[in-house]
């Protein structure tokens, strides 16, 4: 299990990286390499050129400004895990990143790599889906920004074209004190989820839902938002019965199936985990409201 030969390039700037990407045939971007290099070792991916963006200036970092979170594509998953900014402003991402692989893979793996790889079960794309993230992509003609809904096109396929590089993720932060939850079921700790659910909720002083976002991974070729469920939540106080009713809606999704799990099991998990995630997000949101009031 040794990779096929390739030429190795270490651009120092984004422009250099883009130039190399444009001029080299069958080139691949190497970021954290935690999925790519495994596939290269199996020789299911055999690039002729590998462009290592780990030395490109300005591609990593976490900043919060004007209610907006910006994460450079080369930011390590580890840095998300240990970032107080993330923990404070985007707790859903912090909850999710703890479920991504293992300490040793998070030390190298990047958020951009996770998004570009676009595994349908992956946690970080699901967080981006729940947060309506914007994905910044640089290409030969400059920069463009793609809403997440238009980013992940189908199974392991994104809007990033062959001559483009994913450079950053931007998230409009929810108000402090929002409810959040990431629940997933994986066979073992750190495995890709069979089904994962990201939930975000805002509630008013009467604990009625004012804003909701629910996104599932592992059920479709890409993260799937559930707008019907989200609108069904608005204006409701989430007691057990209400949550069970809306979770049932999640269980009616059409899902993928493979040797890891059948369609009906995925639907079942979608229902169970949506219920759990909504319950937890609601409890957190209500608690924050209660704290703010006292």
């Amino acid at each position: 299990m040794k990779p096929a030969p390739f030429a190795y390039h270490v651009p120092r700037s984004l422009d250099d990286a883009l130039r190399q990407l444009a001029s080299l045939d069958n080139a691949k971007i190497l970021a954290g390499g935690q999925s790519l290099v495994a596939m290269m070792n199996f020789r299911v991916v055999t690039p002729d050129h590998l462009i290592d963006i780990n030395s490109v200036e300005g591609l990593s970092g976490i900043t919060v400004e004007d209610g907006r979170l910006r994460i450079g594509a080369a930011t390590r998953q580890r840095d998300l895990e240990f970032s107080t900014e993330i923990a404070w402003h985007c707790p859903l991402m912090r909850a999710a990143v703890l479920l991504v692989g293992h300490r040793q893979t998070r030390n190298r793996g990047t958020i951009g790599g996770s998004l570009a790889h676009a595994d349908p079960s992956a946690e970080l794309p699901n967080v981006c889906a729940a947060h309506d993230a914007r994905i910044e992509i640089h290409g030969p003609d400059g920069v463009r920004t793609v809403p997440f809904a238009a980013f992940n096109r189908t199974f392991m396929t994104t809007a990033v074209e062959a001559d483009e590089i994913l450079t950053a993720v931007e998230i409009d932060l929810w108000a402090p004190g929002h409810g959040y939850s990431f629940h997933e079921f994986a066979r073992r700790h750190g495995d890709f989820a069979i089904v994962g659910v990201a939930a975000l909720l805002d509630v008013d002083d009467g604990h009625r839902v004012t804003r909701a976002s629910l996104s599932l991974c592992g059920v479709d070729a890409m993260p799937r938002r559930l707008p019907a469920v989200e609108s069904a939540l608005i204006g409701r106080v989430l007691d057990d019965g209400t949550i069970d009713d809306v979770a049932d809606m999640a269980g009616d999704l059409e899902t993928i199936e493979d040797h890891h799990a059948s369609k009906s099991y995925r639907q079942h998990l979608a229902r169970i985990l949506s219920g759990r995630a909504l319950r937890e997000a609601n409890a957190r949101a209500c608690l924050q409201k209660a704290r703010a009031a006292s």
Binding site: R187, R188, H189, G190, D191, F192, H259, H260
Partner: peptide
């Protein structure tokens, strides 16, 4: 990743 060996948490 497909053949699941027990981990420390199992």
């Amino acid at each position: 990743a497909d053949y699941l060996m027990p981990m420390a948490t199992d």
